[in-house]
Amino acid sequence: MAIKLFSIGLFDEKDELTSINMKIFPDHTPLIHVDIEGFELSTLKLEIRWDYENDSELMDLIYITRYLQDKGAPHIGLTMPYIPNARYDRINNDDEVFTLKYFAEVINSLHFDYVDVLDAHSNVSLALIDRVRQIDVAPLIQKAIDDFKPDVLFMPDEGAHKRYSKMFTLPSTFGIKTRDWRTGEIKDYFLAEQNLVEDRRVLIIDDICSRGGTFYYSSKLLRDNGATSTGLYVTHCEENIANGNLLNKEKSGIEQIYTANPLWHRDMTTSVYSPLDEIKVID
Results as ranks from 00 to 15, higher is better:
residue 7 S to R: 15
residue 7 S to H: 12
residue 10 L to R: 11
residue 12 D to T: 12
residue 15 D to W: 01
residue 15 D to S: 11
residue 17 L to Q: 04
residue 17 L to H: 08
residue 20 I to M: 03
residue 20 I to N: 06
residue 25 F to W: 15
residue 26 P to H: 12
residue 27 D to G: 02
residue 29 T to S: 15
residue 33 H to F: 07
residue 33 H to S: 12
residue 42 S to H: 06
residue 44 L to I: 03
residue 46 L to F: 08
residue 48 I to V: 14
residue 53 E to Q: 12
residue 55 D to L: 14
residue 56 S to M: 10
residue 57 E to D: 14
residue 58 L to Y: 03
residue 59 M to Q: 06
residue 61 L to K: 08
residue 66 R to V: 03
residue 74 P to G: 10
residue 78 L to P: 03
residue 83 I to Y: 09
residue 87 R to D: 06
residue 88 Y to H: 14
residue 101 K to W: 02
residue 111 H to D: 14
residue 115 V to Y: 00
residue 115 V to H: 01
residue 115 V to I: 09
residue 123 N to F: 05
residue 124 V to C: 08
residue 125 S to P: 10
residue 127 A to D: 13
residue 130 D to E: 14
residue 134 Q to W: 02
residue 135 I to G: 08
residue 136 D to W: 05
residue 138 A to D: 09
residue 139 P to Y: 13
residue 143 K to E: 05
residue 145 I to M: 09
residue 145 I to S: 06
residue 148 F to A: 13
residue 148 F to R: 11
residue 155 M to L: 15
residue 156 P to L: 04
residue 158 E to T: 01
residue 158 E to W: 03
residue 160 A to Y: 00
residue 160 A to H: 01
residue 161 H to F: 13
residue 161 H to N: 10
residue 162 K to W: 00
residue 164 Y to V: 04
residue 165 S to Y: 11
residue 165 S to A: 15
residue 167 M to N: 12
residue 173 T to W: 03
residue 185 E to C: 04
residue 186 I to V: 14
residue 200 R to E: 08
residue 212 G to V: 09
residue 218 S to D: 13
residue 218 S to H: 11
residue 219 S to D: 05
residue 220 K to G: 06
residue 224 D to P: 04
residue 238 E to F: 15
residue 240 N to D: 14
residue 242 A to K: 15
residue 245 N to D: 14
residue 252 S to I: 07
residue 253 G to M: 13
residue 255 E to D: 13
residue 258 Y to S: 13
residue 261 N to H: 12
residue 264 W to A: 02
residue 265 H to I: 01
residue 267 D to C: 01
residue 269 T to C: 00
residue 273 Y to G: 00
residue 273 Y to S: 09
residue 277 D to G: 13
residue 279 I to D: 12
residue 279 I to H: 08
residue 280 K to E: 15
residue 283 D to Y: 01
